[in-house]
Simulated scan of single mutants.
Amino acid sequence: MRAVVLAGGEGRRLRPATLTVPKPLMPLDGIPILHIILTQLKRAGCTHVTLSLGYQAHMIKASFDENRWSGLELDFSLENEALGTAGPLSLLPPFEDSTLVMNADLLTDIDFADLWARHKKSQASATVALSRQEVDIAHGVVDIDDERRVTDFREKPRLSFLVSAGIYVLEPSLLRFLPQAARHDMPALLDDARAHGEPIEGYVIDGDWHDIGTREQLSFATEAFRADPARYLGRTAAAELCAGTGAPWAVGG
């Protein structure tokens, strides 16, 4: 399995913390988000990861001594200007096979190996990981028809949505819809592909997912990770963390 981790964002909503520490290195209970992600990818069978960098790229590269980390082969791609959530892929060599692409600002217990297997079995051009999110509406919701007659009234309903989790498996053919070295976001890329008849599948995460875009979200993710690190890292890595015996995310480790 090969993966690309998009780690170039500025993390403006996390300021002032991200003025000195890039968002992918923000710690969850002392462990950088990016190191948690790399540990998960390795456990899933990933052998080669490209880190797509932008803001404070030198700090992220400095957190890895060599182009290998805990048994993973690493390489780095640098965007000189913000290219969105899909644009950075245009700077990479053409994909040779299916590639997992994900954001570096999330915490999840998704089974990456199962996502990969489901994608390969589906023969889709792309598989999008989805998280079910629920929103409580504090007021009565009213529906009306074209004649302004009330057709339904729901008191303080809970609405359920599937949202993109920022994790994808892409086929090489999909990248022909990507403009070269221009800002482009993943929804636009997938919409272009769908418009040309490319099959796009969804994979619903049967577990936990946290976006880490704001200080409040960072706090929620930190509490979730602190409460049960084994849920995200597996028992072995979590035990090493608790015992402080050379955990695999240590610099150079």
Rank of each mutant, 00 (worst) to 15 (best):
V5E: 03
P94F: 00
I200N: 09
P22E: 04
D105M: 08
S63I: 11
F76S: 07
E216N: 13
D111Y: 01
T245R: 11
A182E: 14
L162A: 06
V169M: 06
A243L: 15
K42R: 15
L175D: 11
A195N: 14
S164I: 02
N67D: 15
I212V: 13
A182C: 13
V204L: 13
L241Q: 14
L53F: 03
V141Q: 13
M59V: 04
V169G: 09
L72A: 05
F161L: 11
I110C: 03
D136E: 15
E79W: 01
A247D: 01
I36S: 05
L190G: 12
E73H: 13
A82C: 10
P229I: 09
H48I: 02
A193N: 06
F177N: 14
F95W: 08
Q56N: 06
S164P: 06
N80F: 13
A238Y: 00
L14T: 08
I212L: 11
V142K: 11
L89I: 03
T108M: 05
R43D: 13
A165L: 09
L41D: 10
M1Q: 05
T108Y: 01
L130K: 09
L159Y: 03
R118N: 07
L174C: 12
R194N: 01
K23M: 12
H119N: 04
G87T: 09
G140I: 15
T222G: 09
L92Q: 04
E134L: 05
L78W: 12
L218S: 10
V135Q: 07
R149E: 08
A224I: 00
F112V: 06
L14P: 04
H35F: 04
L174D: 12
R226Y: 00
D75C: 15
A227N: 10
I31L: 08
E216R: 14
T108Q: 06
L100G: 07
H139S: 15
L178K: 11
Q40D: 06
L115M: 00
A82D: 14
M102T: 05
A182W: 00
L6Q: 06
M186P: 01
G140L: 15
L159I: 11
L178N: 09
L78E: 13
G202H: 11
A124H: 05
H58Y: 02
A44V: 08
S173T: 08
E223K: 13
A104P: 01
V204E: 10
A188F: 12
D191F: 09
V142F: 05
D111K: 03
L218D: 09
M59K: 14
